[in-house]
Amino acid sequence: MKTTQPIAIIIMGVSGSGKTTIGELLSSKTNIPFADGDSFHPQKNIDKMVAGHPLNDQDRLGWLQEINKFCTKNIKQGKSCIVACSALKQSYRAILQNGIKEQMVFVYLLGTFELIQERLGKRKSHFMPASLLKSQFEALQPPKDAITMDIDNTPTAIVEKIVEQLP
């Protein structure tokens, strides 16, 4: 990292792309605290996903606002943070950036449907069923201004490349 200013790093991508794994490794490498965006979901969102129903924009609004509050609080306290958050649409990323756009960096974990579906099939104990992956890809609007990482690499190699590209 080159900057001494606090930044909020959002590790984004569809479910199963490795956001938590990469976020935790990046946190370990940079000593920047990590938070999993899933922990900001209200119970009703979790219940909806467990039941196999995709979230809509209204479901996601409060969740995205809570993540923005968390990031804003950290930035105002002079602290950087890393958050794993799908941030699938540009409108969602705008909510996350509200008031801190210049201090937010997106890291987009890019992978094929087939690779991610295979990973989700192996994942245990997560409330997001693999059946919702198609809806995530349908909602995904790949970011234009992000550090983009192909997930067909080792997590360690991905994190090394992210660190090289952080501002």
Results as ranks from 00 to 15, higher is better:
I7K: 14
I7R: 13
I7S: 02
I7E: 07
I9P: 06
I10N: 03
I11W: 10
M12Y: 04
G13V: 09
V14W: 08
G16N: 06
S17H: 10
G18P: 13
G18T: 11
T21K: 09
T21M: 11
I22G: 05
G23H: 11
L25W: 05
K29I: 00
N31K: 14
I32H: 10
P33G: 01
A35H: 12
D36H: 04
G37F: 05
G37R: 11
S39Q: 15
F40D: 09
F40W: 11
H41L: 08
Q43S: 07
N45Y: 07
I46K: 13
K48S: 06
M49K: 03
V50C: 08
P54W: 06
P54S: 06
P54Q: 06
L55T: 03
N56D: 15
N56M: 02
N56E: 12
R60Q: 07
L61K: 14
L61P: 00
L61G: 00
G62C: 03
G62P: 01
L64R: 09
Q65S: 13
Q65N: 14
E66H: 14
I67F: 09
I67M: 13
K69W: 04
F70I: 01
T72L: 15
T72P: 00
T72C: 06
K73V: 03
N74G: 05
I75N: 06
K76G: 00
G78D: 10
G78N: 11
K79F: 08
K79T: 01
S80N: 08
S80Y: 11
S80A: 06
A84W: 06
C85N: 13
C85E: 09
L88P: 05
K89P: 01
K89S: 02
Q90A: 11
Q90F: 05
Y92M: 12
A94M: 05
A94G: 00
I95Q: 12
L96V: 11
L96C: 10
Q97F: 04
G99I: 10
K101L: 14
E102P: 00
M104D: 01
V105C: 12
V107N: 03
L109I: 10
L109D: 05
G111N: 09
T112P: 02
E114I: 02
L115D: 03
I116W: 01
I116G: 02
E118D: 12
E118I: 00
L120F: 04
L120G: 03
L120I: 03
R123W: 12
K124A: 13
K124M: 12
K124N: 15
S125T: 15
H126N: 15
P129C: 07
A130S: 15
S131Y: 02
L132I: 09
L132T: 08
L133Q: 07
L133M: 08
K134V: 13
S135C: 04
S135N: 12
S135V: 03
Q136Y: 02
Q136H: 14
E138W: 00
E138G: 00
E138Y: 02
A139W: 00
L140C: 02
L140F: 04
P142I: 04
P143Q: 08
P143D: 09
P143E: 10
A146M: 04
I147K: 08
T148W: 01
D150Y: 13
D150K: 15
I151R: 12
P155T: 10
T156S: 14
A157P: 02
I158Q: 03
E160L: 08
E160M: 01
K161V: 00
K161D: 12
I162D: 01
V163G: 04
E164C: 00
E164R: 05
Q165L: 12
Q165E: 12
L166E: 05
P167T: 02
P167W: 01
